[in-house]
């Protein structure tokens, strides 16, 4: 596909594009590379104004006794073992994977319906979703806070109702407090994520010919059966690409988690601002850097594994959307 349509640049243009691309390559990678380099040096090297000392860590090597290039895992040890960063890691994983699963499941159902419907209603729902996507997240959180904080009292009447109440009491003895718990944050992030998910998946479904589900329904499938057995199996790339974007939104969220989670269920990203704000000494700063590198590592792996999918997915889908 494509590509070769702009080959055969003149030597001048060739040199200019290669130089600019090389500059971008360095600019894109440098801040992250530098962060990683600083995180494995002692403060004396990490904060030196001589870049070579940050790169090679001579003092770190001398004090560590061995090797030409200095390495210390102290900052990671402090973050992960002394400060139990794995708790926040687990919380982040719970929130992220729940958001991705719920978001893509209900998003795929809605997107399929919207892709196959030509009604005015479908058009209005899509436009509403687009407008919802523009809502700043703090606007929504301002709406949740009082409700979430008082959810137990607000939901109590439901639990006191005859019939329904008995059923609800089977699931939970008391109405849940949504404030501070992952459940509330998961639902909020799912909702924030829905507009983008629906729009993206819809453009993937549009690429699948409608004859396919019609044929399945003639063969006796229910509409849902056709969706589940015939359409979803060929939707792999679309679902994967959409799931990746959901992952990024949930994993990278700061604002919602910072306002709606208590300290016990806090995720990794808001926790890092505590390290940064306590930057009284250089060791604390290096711990913040080690935590930052720890948060970035899974994202790095994600791009490494799914890079082709992201581009191919965008080519197939959102691009037409």
């Amino acid at each position: 596909m494509g590509g070769s349509h702009d080959r055969g640049l003149g030597p001048g243009l060739w040199l200019v594009t290669r130089t600019l691309l090389a500059i971008w390559f360095v600019v894109a990678a440098f801040p992250l590379f530098w962060m990683a380099a600083m995180s494995i040096r002692l403060p004396i090297d990490a904060f030196s104004s001589n870049p070579l000392r940050v790169l090679l860590g001579p003092e770190t090597a001398r004090l560590g006794g061995g090797g030409p290039i200095g390495f210390t895992g102290d900052h990671y040890k402090a973050v992960w073992i002394d400060n139990a960063f794995h708790r926040q890691f687990v919380n982040s994983m719970i929130v992220t994977f729940s958001v991705v699963t719920i978001s893509v499941s209900i998003g795929a159902l809605a997107a399929y319906g919207l892709a196959r419907s030509k009604s005015r209603l479908a058009f209005w729902l899509l436009m509403t979703a687009l407008i919802f996507r523009a809502m700043p997240h703090s606007v929504l959180v301002a709406g949740y806070l009082p409700v979430f904080a008082n959810s137990r009292e607000w939901l109590q009447p439901l639990w006191d109702m005859p019939g329904l109440g008995a059923l609800l009491r089977l699931m939970a003895a008391e109405p849940p407090t949504l404030y501070g718990k992952p459940f509330g944050v998961i639902m909020v992030l799912v909702a924030i994520n829905q507009p983008f998910t629906i729009w993206m998946l819809r453009s993937f479904f549009m690429n699948i010919p409608a004859e396919l589900d019609e044929a399945a329904q003639i063969d006796g499938c229910t509409p849902f059966g056709a969706f589940w057995r015939v359409i979803l199996p060929v939707m792999g790339p679309g679902v994967l690409t959409t799931a990746l974007f959901s992952f990024l939104l949930a994993y990278n969220d700061y604002l919602v988690a910072a306002l709606l989670l208590d300290a016990q269920s806090q995720t990794m990203v808001p926790t890092i601002s505590q390290y940064v704000n306590s930057e009284n000494n250089l060791t604390d700063q290096l711990r913040a850097i080690a935590a930052a590198v720890s948060i970035t590592a899974p994202l790095f792996l994600l791009v490494l594994v799914f890079q082709k999918r992201i581009v191919a997915g965008l080519t197939l889908g959102a691009v037409k959307g």
Partner: peptide
């Protein structure tokens, strides 16, 4: 090129 995009904005 994707690295600056996927990285957590705060980080």
């Amino acid at each position: 090129s994707l690295l600056p995009y996927v990285i957590t904005p705060v980080v």
